[in-house]
Design a protein around this nucleic acid. Structure first.
Lengths: 248, 248
DNA sequence: CGACTAGTTGAACGACGTCAACCGTTGTGG
DNA sequence: CCACAACGGTTGACGTCGTTCAACTAGTCG
């Protein structure tokens, strides 16, 4: 697997490390969360982690690999709602409600689970943990807002450029690549489902970005050649990616 | 004002009633939140409540009227990110971060403010309050997800129909109209900024929906004639509007 | 070797945007 | 009280961006 090779596996003790790194949790809270994690599961590429409409009984934190949330419409079309990198909580919602999307492994992933009952107890006991979870939801909402702007008001060029910028920045932040080069385990069909444009058009726009000397994509790897120019046509401001999680 | 007439003002004691109605907060928490509310402010239609990029020092809860969150792009175009009805918290984020959008009054609005410092103290003291705020964020994220699907994968017809469905349902839930008829204080330009289509096209699609006998709009009021048919072409499922807020 | 998937290309079509003009209502100031 | 400006809505003509369909290629896996 070209993708797995790009990432060293985490030692078992640090399973939650990528998640905890984004929080300002006290040492006691970190230990309590770590202790609540059950067995680590692996899911193969393309396989479902949570079915759309299911009511999850545990919080799923992505430890390794890439996953996404996708809404399946009743005519079979799809809209990808979110892309997850290691450290992201994949169904971070405060109530046990049916998921309005499917969670799907893009690469081989490893996931940690914390049972809802345990989590509720932890939240009641520790304001810090409750706050960290809220922060995670808010961070993902901010990401989603950027997508909304992108879908609503940008040409397919700017949209694809923005997507590439976000992917490279977030993957880089998760230790996948250096912000200029990173694995891109997504097919053009995946990208089209994320951006709300047809796969054929993704292909053409991607070629144009190549011709403009902005990036190259080959065998599952992305290389951003001219980052400043790409950021410019994407209107990309990485500020929204890093939400601080200091107490309100 | 045709709009103000549609809604009786809240007595001062119940300022937070629309917000609290969606939570399962204990009586003590409700009183504590109510006590933290400062002076009630009014904002005139079209005026700004929070500037894009500002770092808010208080949580703003909409008490009366309609408001929206809008992202201003640097070429002047706009994308509306959210529509707020009474009871909605308008900048419900867990950290004091710069707002990536402008909050704007659509009608004359009345807003309640809770200072961030007070709110932080309340959250630390009460898991229930922390949870209620998280729920509010998650609810708005779910609304935003529907918009994302709408923008990404629906024709302008379905998109507009969906928007109308959501507006009538949410306004009805806030005591504005009965789900079939409600005030619609939005211009076609506003709607175009929400749906990511041009104002001219909004006009044409609206006319077609009228011709199909699905709805009528006149002088700021919306009347849904054939709700079932409208729900069908919009692919509208009101389930996502009412997220339960029972503890996880 | 054949089946399958992802990517690529061309041609034709359609949805939607843009531009420009015009209408009706409202509000304002002479 | 009227003139006029400002704004929202309406209409037509035209252009373009993106979709759809179909065919073809290249890599991969059994």
């Amino acid at each position: 697997m070209t993708f797995a090779a790009a990432r060293a596996p985490y030692p078992k003790a640090d399973i939650l490390a990528p998640f905890l790194a984004r929080t300002d949790l006290a040492e006691a809270d970190r230990r309590a969360l770590g202790a609540a994690v059950g067995e680590i599961h692996s899911v193969a590429p393309g396989h479902c982690i949570r079915e759309q409409g299911a009511t999850p009984q545990s919080l799923v934190i992505l430890v390794e690999g890439i996953a996404h949330a996708v809404r399946i419409l009743n005519d079979g079309r799809q809209q990808i709602l979110a892309l997850y990198v290691p450290g992201d909580a994949m169904d971070c919602q405060p109530a046990r409600a049916p998921l309005p999307f499917r969670l799907c492994a893009v690469t081989t992933v490893r996931i940690a689970r914390i049972a809802c009952d345990d989590l509720a107890a932890l939240m009641r006991a520790s304001p810090g943990i409750a706050h960290a979870l809220w922060c995670e939801t808010a961070r993902q909402m901010a990401l989603q807002q950027e997508w909304l702007v992108s879908l609503g008001r940008q040409s397919s060029h700017a949209r694809l450029a923005h997507f590439i910028c976000e992917v490279s920045a977030r993957f880089g932040g998760a230790g996948l690549g250096d912000g200029q080069r990173c694995p891109l385990p997504l097919t053009q069909i995946d990208i089209s489902d994320a951006l709300g444009i047809s796969a054929v058009h993704v292909n053409r726009v991607l070629q144009q970005l190549r011709k403009e000397g902005l990036l190259t994509v080959s065998r599952g790897f992305l290389h951003i050649v001219d980052r400043d120019a790409l950021y410019k046509i994407a209107n990309f401001d990485p500020a929204y990616l890093g939400i601080t999680t200091t107490l309100i």
